[in-house]
Design a protein around this nucleic acid. Structure first.
Lengths: 158, 158
DNA sequence: TCTATTCAGGACATTTAGTATCCAGGTTAT
DNA sequence: ATAACCTGGATACTAAATGTCCTGAATAGA
């Protein structure tokens, strides 16, 4: 899985504490000392997926496009890593004995079904957790986190 | 995920129908028209993991090392693809404000925990399905499958 | 209007992982 | 002895992930 998924999730949590103001890619990158240009690519992907909104120019930057309760971890994984399953059925059954070349073994192969079933539970789990859930839990453990985040963004403004 | 996982699972199902006799890597590869030397690498990995046993020399080959009811899909994934999670926490929190450099954020980071939780459900699902389950379901749909497999192995004997 | 800031995205370059082949060495049935 | 077969290291090739750079467009403020 792309490392960008981790960056994107942490950035979204931080953006949820900067509600109302746009944050530039440069400041988001400085937060965790990430390469600016590459993080920018991930933020662009989140924007294309409708998770963030972006504004060009001075005072520009990124914001959450909607309530963080409606942004799931699965949304972010799909936006950054793509919609494909980890297990990719290459339909080797088509090379086997008695195979029907026209059949779609991605759907009918028992192994393929089992693997897709497991990934489905994985996705369901990720879909059930929102950025707001994560942010709330962080606050429960570290109440100062939102203020720390806002302060750091302010200090990095320069 | 490695393509070898798919090869290994299909090969194990076929081996479950060749109980008692060793099958060579060449015949297993010919079954689905796979590259022999590379499939052999996957079979070696299964052997190292204790899923298969191997015998050198003429009449040699591979067999299941234990009852297919005790070989889970997770066993095969771990043997071929390794034990690592897809999501790898790089602990970027250590670069953040108020970070404790000595803390292990792989364990304490809320995002890392959520991702590991989701992968856990995925692994549980794979652990609950055995090669025997798969083979039984194939037989239910295609009763001739075991005979087809044995015949094909016999014909490929050359 | 001019300038500085920032996002958008294409074109690379670099690094790493997956895929695949080959060969030398050891084991075993005939 | 010989041929079949597994073992594992070395190596090559390919694809994907990671990272940088540059041009162009949008926009705020002087």
């Amino acid at each position: 899985m792309n490392e960008g998924v981790e960056w994107a999730m942490h950035s979204c949590v931080n953006l949820s504490w900067a509600a109302g103001e746009a944050v530039t890619a440069k400041r988001l990158a400085a937060f965790y000392n990430l390469p600016t240009a590459y993080l920018n690519k991930q933020l662009q992907a989140l924007t294309r997926a409708g998770i963030l909104t972006s504004v060009s120019g001075p005072k520009g930057g990124f914001q959450l496009a909607r309530d963080p309760r409606n942004i799931s971890l699965l949304d972010i994984v799909v936006a950054i890593d793509g919609p494909d399953d980890a297990f990719r059925c290459t339909e080797i059954l088509k090379e086997g004995p008695g195979a029907d070349t026209r059949a779609d073994y991605t759907k009918t192969c028992v192994i393929s079904q089992a693997m897709r079933g497991a990934e489905l539970t994985y996705r369901r789990e990720l879909a059930s957790r929102s950025i707001a859930d994560i942010a709330d839990e962080v606050v429960r453990r570290t109440p100062a986190a939102p203020d720390n985040t806002r302060n750091r963004f302010a200090n990095l403004k320069s």
